[in-house]
């Protein structure tokens, strides 16, 4: 049988261990509550950034299509969810509105005609997980419209 390296008949080492663990627990619990709050903030921030990116991406695509002339088109694939939340994108002649988790973000664009390819509505909804083609179309000889159609 092995000889013990340290003789500790009064169990002072056990006592030290317990006291150290107590302090460690107190410190850890306070750090965990701080970390939890920060993690929630990070998740919300990530969702807000992704939402803003979607709205800017769609608004930018509309601007590029409009300024590039007749026949120019851009295909956009919408993400299925934004950080686990459903969302909806609404496009009209003045900009792009994204709604997610009770919050809204808006990207302005230069006033122009927007229409749905099939229904000719001036307000178009873009749904999560679907692909869309944004196309510049000529209407009434002189004017152009940005048509959004589901791919």
């Amino acid at each position: 049988m092995h000889d013990p390296i340290i003789k500790d008949q009064l169990a002072s080492l056990n006592l030290d261990f317990l006291v150290s663990m107590l302090f460690l627990l107190i410190i850890t619990s306070s750090i965990i509550s701080i970390a939890e709050g920060r993690l929630t903030t990070v998740e919300k921030t990530e969702q807000s950034v992704e939402t803003r990116l979607i709205s800017e991406k769609v608004a930018h695509a509309i601007e590029v299509v409009y300024s590039s002339g007749e026949g120019h088109e851009i295909r956009i694939k919408m993400p299925s969810r934004l950080k686990g939340s459903d969302y909806l994108v609404k496009v009209n002649q003045s900009g792009v509105l994204v709604m997610v988790g009770g919050r809204r973000g808006y990207s302005f664009s230069y006033m122009k005609k927007i229409s749905s390819y099939n229904t000719h509505q001036t307000q178009v909804f873009m749904s999560p997980g679907k692909s869309y083609i944004i196309r510049n179309m000529k209407v009434n000889n002189n004017s152009h419209t940005v048509a959004i159609l589901e791919d």
């Binding site: 701080i34 919050r103 809204r104 808006y106």
Partner: peptide
Amino acid sequence: LNQAMTASRTGALDGSVSDGLAMYPEDAF
């Protein structure tokens, strides 16, 4: 007090992110 100040800093960061990215609740929007 330390916990409250940490929470207020986290909340202020939340607010600044909302302001910075212009993502608001419906009524404020």
